[in-house]
Amino acid sequence: MKHKISVNINGKQCEGEVEGRELLVNFLREHQSLTGTHIGCDTSSCGACTIHLNGAATKSCTVLAVQADGAEVTTIEGMATNGELHPLQAGFKEEHGLQCGFCTPGMIMTAADLLKNNPNPSEHEIREALEGNICRCTGYHNIVRSIQHAAKNMNGVTA
């Protein structure tokens, strides 16, 4: 059986028809062609698929698409506004917080959740907040710097 769903994705109302078993990440990638959200594992462990569901960082591989009916979803594609990079996006570029780029969208989405709840995180708090996101390239060193950079800018202080 197919379910009609309507999801507000990055500010735009998107309609779709999905099977019950379809995952939100597939709905984003296959139906909406929002391929910035990646799939890195099968066990909800790696965080590459992290998006915001009603404002909270969520692993879109562990949510059914039909569960997102009526919800607001933000993906990496929705982070820049009016062509202006989100401070986290800018921070990742500025501090070389990415290499292959595959984990990056998930990292940025998780970091955004962290900074929303804790605008001035310590290094320790940043590292703990990233425990659900695996990066195999950077050793996390520059990811931490990138988030610190963004935190400073978002608090109105230039890094």
Binding site: S44, G47, L53, A56, A57, T58, K59, T62, E131, G132
Partner: peptide, 9 residues
């Protein structure tokens, strides 16, 4: 428990 994303859901 888990991580931020898991705790949110």
């Amino acid at each position: 428990i888990g991580d931020i994303q898991v705790r949110n859901m």
